Computed example of a mutant assay.
Amino acid sequence: MKLFITGISTDVGKTIASAMITEALEADYWKPIQAGDLENSDTHKVRAYVSNEKSFFYDNSYALNTAASPHLAAKLDGITIELSQINIPETTNEYLVIEGAGGIFVPLNDTDTIIDLIQPDYKVVVVSRHYLGSINHTLLTIEALQNRKINIAGIIFSGDENIASESVILNKTGARFLGRIEQEPYFDKNVIKEYAERFREVLLDL
């Protein structure tokens, strides 16, 4: 099973969720496009959070120098991102966690966006975080995925519970609630492992 982790925006908890899911399933991990922070990339972070020895961490297809939208970061590096150069790793692991960059309509080049990376056999986990406008962003994300008939595994909410927002999102989308990542003071291997144990059962049922 290939799980594509996307967010409703940037900095909503996508990488933390990816680490928890990778740990829970002892999955392999791959972030196709990294823009900026190459010395402490999302792959570095997930590797540092994961405790199991089974997970393998694949290199980015594109490692761009500037922390910006991938299309701009690529332009600043003097290249153009091409989907044909983003090849899914040939993993022998039963599970592969694929982390996107920002939201699903973040541009990669003049024509393609993150949603174009999602293959028919992927299941998408949407990470939603509560802020003013997040209901709209979550509903738009889910509707865009549904319009393309992309398989949505469910939603993870990141941050303190907000029943008013969550009930609207779950009722309107019909998406499965996979769990919540609380507003923790910090994350380390032990915290990630605790969450992985919480998430494991529902993830194995996808």
Results as ranks from 00 to 15, higher is better:
Ile135Glu: 04
Ile79His: 12
Val50Ile: 11
Ile115Trp: 00
Glu39His: 12
Arg148Val: 12
Pro185Tyr: 12
Gly103Thr: 04
Asn87Cys: 06
Ala175Met: 10
Tyr62Met: 08
Asp188Arg: 02
Pro120Glu: 10
Asn40Thr: 14
Ala67Gln: 15
Ala19Thr: 11
Thr15Asp: 07
Lys123Pro: 05
Ala68His: 06
Asp28Ser: 07
Pro70Asn: 09
Glu82Phe: 03
Ile16Asn: 08
Tyr195Thr: 10
Arg176Ile: 08
Glu184Cys: 08
Ser158Phe: 03
Thr80Ala: 07
Lys189Leu: 02
Ile135Ser: 13
Leu64Trp: 01
Lys2Thr: 07
Ser55His: 10
Val124Lys: 05
Leu3His: 02
Ser9Pro: 00
Leu76Tyr: 09
Val202Cys: 05
Ile5Leu: 04
Ile169Tyr: 10
Gln85Met: 09
Leu117Ser: 07
Gln85Thr: 06
Ala164Glu: 15
Lys2Gly: 06
His71Met: 07
Glu201His: 09
Ser158Glu: 13
Asp110His: 05
Glu26Ile: 00
Ile142Ser: 07
Glu99His: 09
Pro107Lys: 02
Asn136Gln: 13
Asp205Trp: 00
Ser158Val: 13
Ile152Ser: 08
Asn151Tyr: 04
Lys45Ser: 02
Lys193Gln: 14
Glu143Pro: 02
Phe199Asp: 00
Asn93Met: 04
Asn93Trp: 02
Thr113His: 11
Val124His: 07
Phe177Ala: 13
Ile118Leu: 01
Ile33Ala: 08
Ala74Val: 11
Ser51Arg: 14
Asp116Lys: 09
Lys54Ala: 01
Glu39Arg: 07
Gly100Phe: 01
Ser18Thr: 03
Lys75Asp: 05
Gly7Glu: 04
Ala67Val: 05
Glu143Ser: 13
Tyr58Lys: 07
Ser134Val: 05
Pro107Asp: 08
Tyr95Leu: 01
Leu38Lys: 13
Met1Asp: 04
Leu64His: 10
Gln146Tyr: 06
Lys45Pro: 00
Leu140Tyr: 08
Arg180Asn: 13
Phe199Cys: 00
Ala74Tyr: 11
Arg148Tyr: 10
Glu197Phe: 01
Val202Ile: 15
Gln85Val: 00
Leu145Tyr: 06
Leu203Asp: 00
Tyr131Glu: 08
Arg129Glu: 11
Ser41Gln: 08
Val127Asp: 03
Val127Phe: 06
Tyr195Arg: 08
Ala101Lys: 03
Lys149Trp: 07
Ile135Gln: 04
Val12Cys: 14
Val125Gly: 01
Glu94Cys: 06
Asp11Ile: 01
Glu143Lys: 11
Ser165Thr: 14
Gln146Asp: 15
Asp112Ser: 12
Leu25Phe: 03
Asp59His: 05
Asn171Cys: 08
Arg198Ile: 11
